[in-house]
């Protein structure tokens, strides 16, 4: 038996507070309600999958969380503080990391420099006009790269990396500001089945170890059902289901609008 310290109790209590709380989020484009009163929350160290048909409002929803779009209504709270309608760079400063559906790296820089760039920004050193950027935060960058298994390729140009490796670099960059929340837009799009599983297992490990909340969109049901703690389903801008992977999988409504029979996706 080990004694439980007060600090551990405090962190356990904090752990049950959601990192991200979304309330009644709404957005219309030209009179069409793309996102219509969506509410959900994500706990630290857990993975929440956001799924739904194309055009259901997933991307719109995502872009309102990361600041690319301003919501028409509703609230987004990060660790209890409102981030609704903030610009992407300020959302990042509040502690939100993100990866993109189409990999976004700085191609004129090496893998390590990509991570250093994020660390330089996090340290607020971006306006410094002198001193070599390559020499800054080198160890921290290498540590992050080691975490995602990319340390060996630190000196390579991002332009020549394999696709799966590029995704890992993106993950390292997204972790550079020690985020509370990680937003991943179709993180495994375009990857081979095994790579998909590997990347998401890595993400889940890091999330659990560091208490990061992860929200991701995904079309690969293998990934969703293996790596999410819970799943929310969006259809025509509305939340139509919310539950564990198994609950959502059995939901007849979800099967009708989204999952289908499972013939082409491995059957579930």
């Amino acid at each position: 038996m080990t004694a439980v310290s007060p600090a551990q109790i405090a962190s356990a209590v904090a752990a049950s507070e959601p990192v991200l709380v979304v309330r009644d989020l709404a957005k219309s484009f030209g009179g069409v309600r793309a996102v219509d009163g969506v509410s959900f929350s994500v706990l630290p160290g857990t993975m929440l999958a956001l799924i739904g048909p194309n055009g259901a409002g997933k991307t719109t929803c995502f872009n309102m969380l990361n600041g690319q779009l301003r919501p028409d209504g509703g609230q987004v709270l990060l660790a209890g503080r409102p981030i609704t309608g903030m610009k992407p760079r300020n959302v990042w400063r509040m502690g939100v990391g993100r990866t993109f559906q189409i990999t976004a790296t700085f191609t004129s820089m090496t893998v390590r420099e990509n991570v250093q760039m994020a660390l330089i920004s996090h340290a607020g050193e971006i306006w410094s006009p002198f001193g070599r950027a390559r020499d800054r935060h080198r160890e921290a960058a290498d540590a992050l790269l080691a975490q995602v298994g990319m340390a060996a390729q630190a000196e390579r140009a991002c332009g020549v990396l394999a696709y799966g490796d590029l995704k890992r670099v993106e993950l390292a960059v997204a972790l550079a500001n020690q985020p509370k929340l990680l937003l991943m837009d179709e993180p495994t799009a375009g990857m081979a089945p095994r790579e998909r599983i590997e990347l998401m297992a890595l993400t889940a490990d890091i999330a659990a170890a560091e208490g990061i909340a992860v929200l991701f969109t995904e079309h690969d049901m293998d990934v969703v059902f293996t790596h999410s703690d819970s799943v929310i389903v969006l259809d025509r801008g509305r939340l139509i289901a919310h539950g564990t992977a198994e609950e959502v999988r059995q939901d007849p409504n979800v099967r009708a609008v989204y999952l289908g029979t499972g013939a082409t996706s491995g059957g579930h």
């Binding site: 739904g52 048909p53 194309n54 375009g190 609008v257 989204y258 289908g260 499972g262 082409t264």
Partner: peptide
């Protein structure tokens, strides 16, 4: 043809 599409749409595509 199936990339980035919901499973129901992928079935339709097939």
């Amino acid at each position: 043809p199936s990339e980035g599409l919901a499973p129901v749409i992928v079935e339709e595509m097939a």
